[in-house]
Simulated assay, not measured.
Amino acid sequence: MSIRTALALLLMLLVTAHAEAAPPSKIEHLAWLAGCWQLDGQPSGAGEQWSTLAGGTLFGSSRSLRDGRTVGFEFMQLRQHDDGRLVLTALPSGRNPTEFNATRIDDTEAVFENPANDFPQRIRYRRLDEQRAHARIEVAQDNPTQAIDFPMHRVACGGSTSTR
């Protein structure tokens, strides 16, 4: 075997080993988000609702309430792209979409980042148990004064309606 052939084989082995060591993130780890989540300490209906996982996508919406009125909303999409990237796309209060790429995904936590966005630059979802979760938005430099926490608990979807 020539040195050139040996080097080519070695390079192929290294590339294969690296690819096996770093599999792409899988959206299946986030299937636990499906359902309705009430923000702790907030009026009924303030929180997030996520669809079930289908076609490599989860769809979500959030709503903020004050004095019985909606004061903020957001539409979200979690999508596993063909290239393996897992992306959270957020459309807050009717503004343009912003994409956040997954930087860490496992069965209990998902971290998404977009350093080019002004705020937030990082979004975290963490499952505490079957009934409790915690979301956090922050700047990527870990400045605790520029972070907002959203503790929440699972509730039945389709609760009472109010016409106020």
Rank of each mutant, 00 (worst) to 15 (best):
V71N: 04
L128F: 03
Q77R: 14
G68F: 12
D107M: 06
T70R: 10
D129P: 06
D83L: 00
L78E: 02
T89L: 06
P97D: 03
E130G: 04
L88V: 01
R122G: 04
Q77D: 02
R122W: 06
A90E: 06
V111K: 15
G72F: 07
D129R: 05
G68Q: 12
D107I: 05
L65I: 14
V111Q: 15
S93W: 03
I123V: 14
F100V: 05
V71T: 15
R127F: 07
T108S: 12
P115W: 11
Q141V: 02
R124C: 01
T103S: 15
P115E: 13
A135C: 03
I137G: 09
N96Y: 01
A102T: 12
H134Q: 12
R79P: 00
G84W: 03
H134I: 02
A102H: 14
H81E: 13
L128H: 08
E74D: 01
R79H: 04
D83C: 01
M76S: 09
H134C: 01
H81N: 13
V87F: 07
V87E: 07
T89K: 03
I137S: 05
R69G: 04
R104V: 15
M76W: 05
R136I: 08
V111G: 11
T98N: 12
D83G: 01
L78V: 08
N96D: 04
T145L: 13
D67G: 13
Y125Q: 04
P97L: 02
R122E: 11
T103P: 15
T103Y: 15
R95C: 00
D107T: 14
A90T: 11
R126C: 03
H81K: 07
T108A: 09
A90I: 07
L88G: 02
Q80E: 14
P144D: 08
D67M: 13
R127A: 14
A90F: 02
V111F: 11
P144S: 07
Q121T: 10
P97G: 07
Q77C: 05
N117I: 04
E138I: 01
R69P: 05
R79A: 11
R69V: 07
Q77V: 11
L65Q: 14
V87L: 10
E74G: 08
N143G: 00
P144I: 07
S64D: 08
P92N: 06
L128V: 14
T89N: 08
Q121S: 06
L86W: 09
I105Y: 11
R136C: 05
P97E: 07
T70K: 12
L86M: 06
D107V: 10
R66E: 15
E74S: 05
V139K: 11
T70Q: 14
V139S: 09
R95K: 13
I137K: 00
